[in-house]
């Protein structure tokens, strides 16, 4: 029997597959504009990897979870991320920071179960989308922007609104500010937002980062400095949602 977790996020879709023993592989792909198409592509990928859906339990999660017709069950990304992060970190008491494409979540976990959670406001402020757009405006990739930020001096980006922040960055470029400083300002603005959410929700146990930014070392370093705590993560942390989904599929 195979256990499949499919996490269709606003930007990226992730798939994790377990057999009866262990995690056998993960796939990530862009979600694109149509999550039904994406779920079909995922099905093709599963076929290619010889995963027979007749012999599998599938849990779909993420904002596109309703667009997976072959899922046996849908579970919210909050519960899945909690489960996945617990699998990856294995700490009884932890606080997960999940930075997604369209929202940021703080999830408290005790003994593998979600006890409480908080999500950001209903806009792109403080999300991965915000960083992506700002990197675009600066004409660099997300990785490059994050690296540039380490070499820059903090510069205050006052606007939390993604659209306003974009015009603010454009005027900063126009006024001759250094790109490194702007990059630092952009990263600090999102880190400030995440810190507020973390403090509001309360940090309990180890902090663990999941989502698409889990491999941005410079981002992790700056976040860790700001909250004055170690930020744990792993290269698999972007799959926390799909891993959690696959693990929860075992209960079906």
């Amino acid at each position: 029997m195979y256990y499949v977790g499919i996490d269709i996020g606003s930007t990226a879709s992730k798939v994790s597959v377990f057999d009866d023993q262990e995690l056998i592989f993960n796939i990530v792909m862009p979600t694109g504009w149509n999550s039904v198409d994406t779920s079909n592509k995922i099905k093709e990928e599963l076929d290619k990897n010889k995963i027979d859906l007749e012999n599998a339990k599938v849990v779909a999660t993420g904002y596109g979870r309703i667009s997976v017709p072959y899922a046996d069950k849908t579970i919210t990304e909050i519960t899945c991320h909690g489960k996945g992060a617990y699998y990856l970190a294995g700490k009884d008491m932890m606080t997960v920071v999940d930075i997604g494409g369209q929202d940021t979540k703080i999830i408290n976990i005790e003994n593998g179960r979600v006890t409480n959670f908080l999500m950001n406001d209903k806009c792109a402020a403080g999300t991965g989308r915000f960083l992506e757009l700002m990197a675009n405006t600066l004409g660099v990739t997300l990785e490059e922007m994050s690296y540039m930020a380490l070499k820059g001096e903090d510069l205050n980006i006052t606007s939390m609104c993604t659209v306003f922040a974009e015009s603010e960055v454009i005027s900063l470029i126009g006024s001759g500010a250094k790109r490194e400083d702007i990059a630092r300002g952009v990263i600090n603005s999102i880190i400030g937002r995440i810190t507020t959410l973390l403090n509001k929700q309360g940090i309990r146990g180890d902090v663990y980062l999941t989502g698409g930014l889990c491999e941005l070392a410079s981002f992790i370093q700056l976040l860790s400095e700001k909250i004055d705590r170690k930020v744990n993560t792993s290269s698999l942390a972007r799959y926390a949602g799909s891993i959690g989904g696959a693990l929860l599929a075992k209960n079906i």
């Binding site: 919210t76 179960r113 979600v114």
Partner: peptide
Amino acid sequence: KTRLNAFIEI
């Protein structure tokens, strides 16, 4: 819906 659903899952 996501918030309420996750709350009910807890």
